[in-house]
Amino acid sequence: MTQSNFDPVGRLLSYVDRIFRYVENTTNVIAGLLIFALMCFGVVRILFRVLDYFHIPHPPLYGFIDIVEVSMVGFAVLSIAFVQRLGGHVRMELILTSLRGRWLWLAETFGGLVALFIVGILIPSSFSHFQRAFEYGDSTMDIEIVTWPAKLVVPFALTILFGRFLIQTVGYLRMLYQPNLEPIAIPVVQTLEDKARSEAASAEQQAR
C-alpha cells in the first residue's frame, strides 16, 4: 500500500515531525518540573506559616504570589503544542468518528486551517502584548518582577503550536490527496471503543 519511494511529502513530514517532537517533549518536561517546583514551594510556604504560628523566625518569603503567577505560564501555556501532537485538546468527535476516508481527512483539514488562521493571529497579537510590557514597563505587585519574559513565552509557545498545526494540516492534505498512504504525523481519531481500550491499558499498570 505505502509507496515509500514515491512519497517526498511523507518523508519531509516525518523529518520535521521528529524535530518538533523533540522541542515539544522538552516543553512538557519543563512544565512537569515547574509543577513539581510549585508543589515544593507551596509546602515551604505552609511550613513557614506553621513557624509563624509558633513565632519561630525564618528567612522571609515575600512575594510568593508574584513568583507563582510569573512562573505559571510555564505550565499553563508552554507545552500547548505537545498536547496538540497527541490530539489531546478537547473537541467534539461525535461527527468525526462517523466519517471515513476522504471525508474524514477533509474535516480534519478544515479544522487544521481554522486553527492555523486563529493561531496565526494570536502570535503577533500576543507578541505585541509582550512588547508593550517590554518597552513601556510592567511588573508584578509586591516584589516587582518584570513580566515581559513570562509574556514572551506565549507567542513562543504559540509559534511551536503553529508549526505543529502546519505539520498536521499538511499531513491531512496528503491523506486527502492519497487516502491509501500510511498516516504520518497526525493524531488518529479514536473511536469510543478505542478510547475505552486505552483507558484500560493505563489501568493495566495499576493492577500490577
Binding site: Y136, G137, D138, M141, E144, V146
Partner: peptide, 8 residues
C-alpha cells in the same frame, strides 16, 4: 500599585 513599573 497594581503595576509599579507601568507608572513609575
Amino acid at each position: 500599585f497594581y503595576h509599579p513599573k507601568k507608572n513609575p
